[in-house]
Design a protein around this nucleic acid. Structure first.
Length: 641
RNA sequence: GGGCCCUUAGCUCAACUGGCAGAGCAACUGACUCUUAAUCAGUAGGUUGAAGGUUCGAUUCCUUCACGGCUCACCA
């Protein structure tokens, strides 16, 4: 609420003196100026059903009505008493809501008759509904877009013609995409050579462009990934269908039946022999040239973004393709897809602040999970040696271009595997995901080109951080990179804030994140994470302070984190204990005795890995912000207004 | 929470050093039966985010606030 249009509408409603408008009988031709939305492609394909119906003889207005009437009752009534529904509306002026004239001093001054009709029970119901939604009198309701009045008037015109305004069903013979595919290969003469019945289609879509010529018009329909032009002619349509066509607005949904042909400019087009009204858009489409540009509106009203911006639709198609490729890959590797609790009594598996909630019946507090990790490993204990889950995690932290409070992670575990195996499979997984979206092309991410090709670089945390420090003019010896005081000194010299826990491991990781992470553009496995920052990974037998763990970076983003799972229950209990002892402000660690008990039943040597699905989607769709790959990202709630 | 930036018609944006607030698109009225950002003629649409200050005069300069963005911090 409180979006710009509403605010402006409020001002206008209060003080603007609308220009007097001629009253017209329903169905009278409206303006003939053309309107249009930038041509684009739609998104979802429509289910193909009854595609043959039209080709089996349901041509013409009759058939169209039948389809529009949702079957039936409405259409049958219509046939029984043509124009019957019209009577109730005939003679009424177009929709104006009662009391509007009070706000129109100029019109009144000019002596123009103030509109004061009720518009029928349906109108009244709509008004009551709006009354419920808002404390404002309807005519100054800020929720009423300035264009909505006109659109409601046209809706009334359509209803006044006896046409069902909100039919239930539409039996298309083709999706727009399918119709284009079926006839797109034929040129004009080629189409003419086919009998009309055989090139007749029944298609539906949203009107995204109207170019009107008084007695004829071109409509551009959009539906799913398809788009198709429709030619409307007065000498072809029934009088009523033509009247409906004159009352259409951009954004409305219609269906048409007629033969395909090619225009003089060679565009594949349906000649509308009949036209069915399917649904009204009371609010206008996003702006036609620039699309929807306002970031905030794009996120808050994603449907408008999808409607107006082909690029947005493409991003989310790519994301879907990527996720299904990941799923196919895991299935192909013999992993079992599982679902583990989102509501957990303890938020474990990652060091992050959880969201807290309450279960009434049980009388307990629960947390939204921060990671599925410990549950998935319980499943390995239970005898599912390969499991994975693609699902949401919730972390009660700040929002940024790389963080959304809920994000999607693919997490998988494989028995008899270690960190190195996990790197190998992660590499193949990420390449498979990239291939599904990019089809072999390198990923363009900002100014960089990222090549998801075997083998990904491998580098140790010590090496890469040491090199970055050296470049910053703060060279440290290997020993110093493992020791807290020199690492803390490096922070001071580089004017970096110290992490709350000043262990050597945290300090090293802090320097890595500050100096090195962003520069890992090509896919790179970083290995050798200190034990202090890896409480769930197994320590290396050779280097006691170092774990068998890796993180994968690309485009400067962390996209995966995997390790040899710590399966010694005593060691795990000790690590949890250390964490609790060191508990810092904000860090909310807990001893998960239930998990320890599971480990005591014996977890085989297991490798695990989590992949940030949103982050990978960012890389593969060249999206600089995580919000661009999440359909409905979290935003600060709108205030005031 | 800190820093920087933005806010002008429904949308996208102009408006010189402080001097009558504009355009395109959308809307509305009219013309037009093959258009492709169709075209043509006309109409309407603004408390320039809010409040205060400086000034003869504020969209413009100053202060505060609000909304939004970016960024930093937080985020094993």
């Amino acid at each position: 609420m409180g979006r710009e249009p509403g605010v402006a509408a409020r001002h206008r409603g209060r003080r603007a003196a609308p220009h007097p408008r001629q009253r017209r009988a329903p169905g009278v031709r409206r303006d003939a100026r053309e309107r249009r939305l930038g041509a684009d492609r739609g998104d979802r394909p429509l289910p193909r059903r009854d595609h043959q119906a039209v080709l089996e003889g349901e041509h013409g207005p009759r058939g169209a009505e039948r389809a529009a009437g949702g079957g039936c009752r409405a259409a049958d009534r219509e046939r029984a008493a043509p124009g019957g529904a019209e009577r109730g509306h005939r003679g009424r002026p177009p929709l104006r809501r009662r009391g509007l004239h009070l706000l129109r001093p100029r019109g009144a001054r000019r002596g123009r008759e103030a509109p004061r009709q009720d518009g029928g029970g349906r109108r009244a119901a709509g008004r009551r509904l709006r009354g419920l939604m808002s404390d404002n009198p309807p005519d100054r309701d800020p929720a009423m877009h300035r264009d909505e009045r006109d659109r409601r008037r046209k809706l009334a015109e359509i209803e006044g013609l006896g046409v069902p305004a909100w039919p239930s069903r539409y039996a298309a013979s083709h999706t727009l995409e399918a119709a284009t595919e079926a006839f797109g290969d034929l040129d004009g003469p080629g189409l003419e050579a086919i009998p009309e019945e055989e090139r007749t289609v029944r298609v539906g879509g949203r009107i995204v462009a109207i170019r009107s010529f008084g007695k004829a018009a071109f409509l551009r329909l959009s539906e799913g990934p398809g788009t198709l032009q429709v030619h409307v002619r007065r000498d072809v349509l029934t009088e009523r269908d033509f009247a409906v066509s004159k009352a259409l607005d951009l954004g409305d949904w219609v269906g048409v039946t007629g033969p395909m042909f090619r225009t003089r400019t060679d565009e594949l087009t349906v000649r509308a022999d009949s036209l069915v009204f399917l649904a009204k858009a009371l609010l206008p489409l996003p702006e036609k040239w620039h699309g929807l540009a306002d970031r905030d509106t794009r996120y808050r009203q994603r449907y408008l973004d999808l409607l107006g911006n082909a690029r947005t639709r493409e991003v989310f198609r790519s994301r879907a393709a990527m996720v299904s490729a990941m799923r196919r890959f895991m299935d192909g590797e013999g992993f079992l897809e599982v679902e583990t609790p989102m509501l957990q009594p303890l938020a474990t598996g990652a060091a992050a602040r959880p969201f807290q909630t309450r279960h009434r019946a049980l009388g307990i507090d629960l947390y939204l999970r921060v990671a599925p990790e410990l549950y998935l490993k319980r499943l390995v204990v239970g005898g599912f040696p390969r499991v994975y889950e693609i699902n949401r995690n919730f972390r009660n932290e700040g929002l940024s271009t790389r963080h959304n409070p809920e994000f999607t992670m693919l997490e998988f575990y494989r028995a008899f595997s270690d960190c190195a195996d996990m790197m190998e499979i992660t590499e193949r997984l990420v390449i498979a995901a990239a291939r599904a979206v990019l089809r072999g092309e390198p990923a363009v991410f900002g100014d960089d080109e990222i090549r998801f090709e075997k083998p990904f670089a491998r580098v140790s945390l010590l090496e890469v951080t040491g090199a970055a420090l050296k470049e910053q003019g703060v060279p440290l010896e290997d020993d110093d990179l493992r020791s807290a005081p020199p690492l803390a000194e490096a922070h001071r010299r580089l004017d970096l804030p110290l992490p709350p826990d000043e262990s050597a491991g945290k300090l090293l990781l802090s320097l890595f994140e500050a100096l090195a992470e962003r520069r890992l553009v090509q896919p790179t496995f970083v290995t050798g994470y200190p034990v202090e920052v890896s409480p769930l990974s197994k320590a290396s037998p050779e280097e006691p302070g170092i774990t068998e763990r890796f993180e994968l970076f690309a485009g400067g983003l962390e996209i995966a984190n995997g390790f040899s799972e710590l399966n010694d229950p005593d060691e795990q209990a000790a690590r949890f204990g250390e964490q609790m002892a060191k508990r810092q402000a904000g860090e909310d660690h807990a001893m998960d005795w239930d998990y320890i008990e599971a480990l005591r039943h014996g977890l085989p040597p297991t490798g695990g890995c989590g992949v940030g699905v949103d982050r990978v989607a960012m890389l593969l769709t060249n999206s600089p912000a995580i919000r661009d790959v999440i359909l409905f990202p979290h935003l600060r709630p709108r205030e005031g207004r």
